[in-house]
Amino acid sequence: MNIKEEIHSQIVGALAGATFPIKTPDELFDALPDGANTTCRAGDVELKASDAGNVLKSDDFPFKSAKEVADIIVDRAGL
């Protein structure tokens, strides 16, 4: 599994218990185990939820699944 796949998998896992749709950034942070401090790590890459929040746009919401959140974050984070 490469770094992009590992981070994607960790984001999906972190949102496993979330209730969708998620309509706002605050709802997204609330759905994560450690909120904005939730951190995904793979190799020498570390991605905090608070950093991922910088790549999301208001028109990305609502999210319908954890996979959708992870797809957008890893794509826009340039992993």
Score class of each variant (00 low, 15 high):
residue 12 V to F: 05
residue 26 D to L: 13
residue 65 S to E: 02
residue 70 A to L: 03
residue 1 M to G: 15
residue 68 E to I: 08
residue 22 I to R: 01
residue 46 E to W: 04
residue 21 P to Y: 07
residue 48 K to S: 13
residue 33 P to A: 10
residue 24 T to M: 11
residue 67 K to V: 13
residue 32 L to R: 07
residue 4 K to D: 08
residue 18 A to I: 06
residue 54 N to T: 12
residue 19 T to W: 00
residue 10 Q to T: 06
residue 8 H to W: 15
residue 6 E to I: 05
residue 76 R to V: 06
residue 72 I to E: 00
residue 19 T to G: 04
residue 79 L to Y: 12
residue 29 F to T: 10
residue 50 S to Q: 12
residue 77 A to R: 03
residue 49 A to C: 06
residue 79 L to W: 08
residue 2 N to S: 14
residue 69 V to S: 05
residue 13 G to S: 14
residue 3 I to Q: 07
residue 34 D to T: 06
residue 54 N to Q: 13
residue 57 K to M: 13
residue 75 D to Y: 02
residue 21 P to W: 06
residue 65 S to N: 04
residue 76 R to M: 06
residue 24 T to I: 10
residue 34 D to Y: 12
residue 25 P to W: 04
residue 17 G to A: 09
residue 61 F to A: 04
residue 14 A to I: 02
residue 12 V to P: 03
residue 38 T to G: 07
residue 39 T to E: 14
residue 3 I to N: 06
residue 31 A to N: 08
residue 70 A to F: 03
residue 13 G to V: 04
residue 18 A to S: 09
residue 7 I to T: 03
residue 15 L to G: 04
residue 52 A to M: 11
residue 75 D to F: 01
residue 49 A to E: 03
residue 56 L to N: 04
residue 54 N to F: 07
residue 78 G to S: 07
residue 1 M to R: 10
residue 16 A to L: 05
residue 28 L to I: 11
residue 13 G to E: 11
residue 33 P to D: 10
residue 54 N to H: 10
residue 20 F to N: 05
residue 71 D to L: 02
residue 50 S to I: 14
residue 61 F to V: 04
residue 22 I to Y: 02
residue 36 A to F: 03
residue 46 E to S: 14
residue 39 T to G: 01
residue 52 A to K: 00
residue 35 G to I: 11
residue 45 V to S: 05
residue 67 K to N: 14
residue 47 L to F: 05
residue 22 I to T: 01
residue 48 K to M: 15
residue 45 V to A: 06
residue 19 T to C: 02
residue 77 A to G: 00
residue 61 F to R: 04
residue 70 A to T: 02
residue 27 E to H: 06
